[in-house]
């Protein structure tokens, strides 16, 4: 298959927009801007789908992703009132960002290696006896439209998965309704307050036991010694495990 220059131009322009949108998602301080960048990425991916002649998927991508999912995101952002700019300058967990960037670079390196190593395995120029030749195993009928073919395969070979999809969507709808419904009475507070309560209860228990221990004089020293002894034993076991 020969590629015309137009294909390359479309690919590189759309690809640039895909990556720009992706960077916009992760670098925007405001979640609304992130959502709008996401629309740009999703649209560009739809363009790339058209370039690969997956017309139906391109339409679904625009309608479902850009039209429904991003709108849902924006809806929730506005509903919760979190459309304020975030402070991105601070890094609450020290060293998290460098490590994340390192992991990302590792991802890119590993997957690019895989792509380069397997570059010719699909097109068949490297191995003549490869598993799936592009034309012999082809299930694409060039005369029919891709919607027709997708429908045919979907309701014959993939019909069970299609039915499961319906079940999945039903579960998702029911789950969403159950999770966001109003509950009668007061909700247990989330976050620090719960932890504070538990910490207070834990400390109270500690004080109780300490008071009991204090009544029984001399017990403190022995327990400390026991703890140290058991810790030493654990360390020895670990070392033995490493040696074995």
């Amino acid at each position: 298959m020969d590629a015309s220059n137009v294909d390359y131009v479309v690919f590189f322009v759309a690809g640039a927009f895909v990556l720009l949108g992706a960077w916009g998602v992760i670098l925007s301080r405001n979640p609304v801007h992130s959502a709008l960048s996401l629309v740009g990425t999703l649209f560009s991916v739809a363009v790339l789908f058209i370039l690969q002649e997956a017309h139906f998927l391109a339409a679904v991508q625009v309608v479902v992703y850009a039209g429904a999912i991003v709108i849902l995101f924006l809806f929730v952002i506005m509903l919760l009132g979190v459309d304020r700019a975030e402070q991105l300058g601070v890094d609450p967990i020290g060293g998290q960002r460098p490590v994340a960037v390192l992991i990302g670079a590792g991802f890119i390196a590993a997957m690019l290696t895989a792509v380069i190593a397997g570059a010719d395995s699909l097109s068949g120029t490297a191995q003549p006896n490869k598993v799936a030749p592009p034309t012999a195993g082809s299930t694409v009928d060039q005369t029919a439209s891709d919607i027709e073919q997708l429908g045919n395969r979907l309701f014959t070979d993939w019909v069970f998965a299609f039915e499961l999809t319906g079940l999945l969507l039903t579960i998702a709808v029911v789950g969403a309704v159950v999770m966001v419904r109003k509950v009668k009475g007061d909700l247990a507070p989330l976050g620090e307050s719960v932890i504070d309560e538990r910490l207070a209860a834990y400390e109270a228990r500690l004080e109780e036991t300490a008071a009991e221990d204090a009544a029984d004089a001399g017990s403190h020293g022995t327990t400390d010694a026991d703890d140290e002894a058991s810790a030493d034993a654990d360390a020895d076991e670990d070392a033995a495990g490493v040696d074995a």
């Binding site: 895909v18 990556l19 992706a22 960077w23 998602v25 992760i26 925007s28 979640p31 992130s34 990425t41 995101f73 929730v76 952002i77 979190v82 975030e86 609450p92 998290q96 960002r97 490590v99 994340a100 960037v101 992991i103 990302g104 670079a105 991802f107 890119i108 997957m111 690019l112 792509v115």
Partner: peptide
């Protein structure tokens, strides 16, 4: 690959659950 890695880094770096 580039898009996936960008998403992965963003998931690790950002703290807003929506983002």
């Amino acid at each position: 690959v580039l898009l996936f890695s960008t998403g992965a880094v963003g998931l690790l770096v950002r703290r807003n659950p929506l983002v």
